[in-house]
């Protein structure tokens, strides 16, 4: 317990040390927000699936610095993204562009939902027709009952005649 008590202030000190490292200066809160958004959206071209905020690869650090520079110049979100795409291609942005080669990203889920919807619709229709069949059954049953009754009548008639023989 005492050890834990000692650890806590040490941990707090560590947090503070981490916070003073890499202190970036922004003119406004909007620019800071934009920088955070951009570094989260831009993908490190060297790493497998890390954004540039998350990576310390040289190219990711260079891209962060360039993003900071462009944001400080007052460029907006799309301008910075375009700047990066001109150099590192569409790969660099986590939001893929809508074009012929990427159209399946939108079409495929849509097709899947439509196919599923169609299947479910057909199935529910099919079960409705079975329900109609079920309702038809009592008529058939009364038919069977009539036949049974006839058989019983016949048998009992025979039984009535038997003792006389």
């Amino acid at each position: 317990m005492r050890l834990k008590m000692l650890c806590l202030p040490a941990l707090l000190l560590m947090l503070q040390a981490g916070a003073t490292e890499d202190l970036l200066q922004f003119e406004s809160a909007e620019q800071q927000q934009l920088y955070r958004q951009l570094t989260a959206e831009l993908r490190c071209p060297k790493c497998q699936n890390q954004n540039i905020a998350d990576s310390n690869a040289v190219v990711a650090v260079d891209m962060r610095n360039k993003t900071l520079e462009l944001v400080r110049q007052g460029q907006n979100h799309d301008q910075v993204i375009d700047y990066m795409k001109q150099r590192y291609g569409d790969f660099v942005h986590y939001q893929p562009p809508f074009q012929l080669s990427t159209v399946w990203l939108w079409l495929l889920p849509l097709l899947a939902v439509l196919t599923l919807g169609f299947t479910v619709f057909r199935r529910s229709k099919a079960s409705q027709t079975t329900a109609v069949d079920d309702r038809a059954e009592p008529e058939d049953l009364s038919d069977v009952a009539a036949q049974l009754q006839a058989m019983i009548d016949e048998a009992s008639a025979k039984a009535r005649h038997k003792p006389e023989e």
Partner: peptide, 8 residues
Amino acid sequence: IFDLGVTG
């Protein structure tokens, strides 16, 4: 190197 889109 940056303008060429070099990653490494």
